[in-house]
Structures are given as structure tokens and as C-alpha cells.
């Protein structure tokens, strides 16, 4: 079976639409996961009664169950208890919940690197714990956490391909659907590999810039 560029060109519009969905669902997932991750880490850091135990359970639960199962639960399980989201938002929700669990741990690790002396200084200045968290330790912790949060975000982009199993028409879905219809593998797999590589490169570049900017105050 030889590589047929004409076949590829014929299906580029559909692949392009799939790519847009992949980008949308990934970006929305990243945004929500970072917000959830920060909130979760804060809840653990401040030891908010009830909430921090819940966050700890949530992190363990998400990290110890397969993402695919979580996705199926959100798509087919939630409607049974009266919550039917669109496929797109099912995708965003499952990716965000998954990545947030890892972000919580990354940020918690970052928070633990904050110097004890700083905390004492904060107390001496009369900062309440949450004020100290928002103004001092979180900005410091996020710098430390960025590389591992980037890792999680890269995984999130790649894991968005699993959403093809629930029928969200993202990039992998379009390719797999085409492969199963026409039996042509080579063209579609090539597209998948090239496009995901490009997406991850772009993401790494952006994160590298963010890291660079955040480290600026610490460079001589």
C-alpha cells in the first residue's frame, strides 16, 4: 500500500476540523485544570476542614483509575443521575478533572519548597495564611511547579485523543474513522504523528517562554 498524497488532500478539511476540536478541548481542559489545581492545592495548604480531605481523596481517586473509564463514566454514567453534558463538555470535564489531580500535587510540591523564614516573616507582618498564600507562596510555588505542570499539560493534549472513544470528533477520531471506512492507514497515521508532535512543540515553546518570564526576577 503506497502513500497517496491525493487521498490525504481529499480529507484535509475534515482533519482540520478535527484539529480545531482537539485544540479547543485541550485549551479549555488546561484552563479549567489549572484553576482547579490551584484551588485544590490551596485547600490542602490551608487545611480547610472537610475540603482538604476531599481533595486528597480526589487526587488519589483520579490518579488510580484509568482515564478512559473516567471518560465513559462522565459520558454514560452521569446521564443516569440526571446530568447530560454535550460531548465537548464531557471531554473538557474529563480532561480537566484528570489534569487537575496532577496539578494539585505539582503545586503542593512547589508550596513545600517555600522557605520557612518567609512564612515567619509573613506572620511577623500580620499576613493571614490565605494572604501569605496568595501574595507570597503561590507565585513562588508556581515557578517551581511549571515544568511538571507543563508535563501534565502535554499529556492532556495527547490524552485528548482518547476522547475518540466517546465519539468526540477530534483529530484522532477523524483519522480513525477514515481508516476504518477506507482501510488506508499510512496517510492518516502520518498526519496524526506530525500534528501531535507539532502541537506539543508549540506548547513546550510557550511554556518555556512563560518559565523564562517568571524566572526573570531571580536572574542576576
Amino acid at each position: 500500500m503506497e502513500f497517496d498524497p491525493a487521498y490525504l488532500v481529499r480529507h484535509l478539511p475534515a482533519l482540520w476540523r478535527g484539529l480545531l476540536v482537539t485544540i479547543e478541548v485541550s485549551l479549555a481542559g488546561m484552563l479549567f485544570s489549572i484553576v482547579l489545581g490551584v484551588l485544590g492545592a490551596a485547600a490542602r495548604y490551608l487545611r480547610i476542614p472537610g475540603l482538604w480531605q476531599f481533595v486528597a481523596f480526589y487526587v488519589e481517586f483520579i490518579r488510580n483509575t484509568p482515564l478512559l473509564v473516567q471518560m465513559f463514566f462522565i459520558v454514560f454514567g452521569l446521564p443516569a443521575i440526571g446530568l447530560t453534558l454535550s460531548l465537548f463538555w464531557c471531554g473538557v470535564l474529563s480532561l480537566a478533572l484528570w489534569a487537575a489531580a496532577y496539578h494539585v500535587e505539582s503545586i503542593r510540591g512547589g508550596l513545600e519548597t517555600v522557605n520557612k523564614g518567609l512564612r515567619e516573616a509573613g506572620q511577623a507582618l500580620g499576613l493571614k495564611p490565605w494572604q501569605f498564600l496568595v501574595k507570597v507562596s503561590l507565585p513562588l510555588a508556581l515557578r517551581v511547579a511549571i515544568p511538571s505542570m507543563l508535563n501534565t499539560s502535554v499529556s492532556l493534549v495527547k490524552n485528548s485523543s482518547m476522547l475518540q472513544a466517546i465519539g468526540l470528533m477530534e483529530l484522532t477520531f477523524v483519522a480513525v474513522d477514515r481508516m476504518a471506512i477506507d482501510f488506508r492507514m499510512l496517510e492518516m497515521f502520518t498526519v496524526l504523528v506530525v500534528v501531535y508532535l507539532a502541537l506539543v512543540f508549540v506548547l513546550s515553546f510557550v511554556a518555556g517562554r512563560v518559565e523564562h518570564v517568571l524566572q526573570r526576577p531571580f536572574r542576576a
Partner: peptide, 16 residues
């Protein structure tokens, strides 16, 4: 578009 008849039927019956 889903992967199996049972997934498809489930989605149909759930009003998706």
C-alpha cells in the same frame, strides 16, 4: 460515532 453497538444504543436511549 461510537465504537460499539452497545455504546451507540446507550447514547441513543439517553437522548444524545
Amino acid at each position: 460515532r461510537l465504537n460499539s453497538i452497545s455504546d451507540a444504543l446507550q447514547a441513543f436511549k439517553q437522548g444524545r
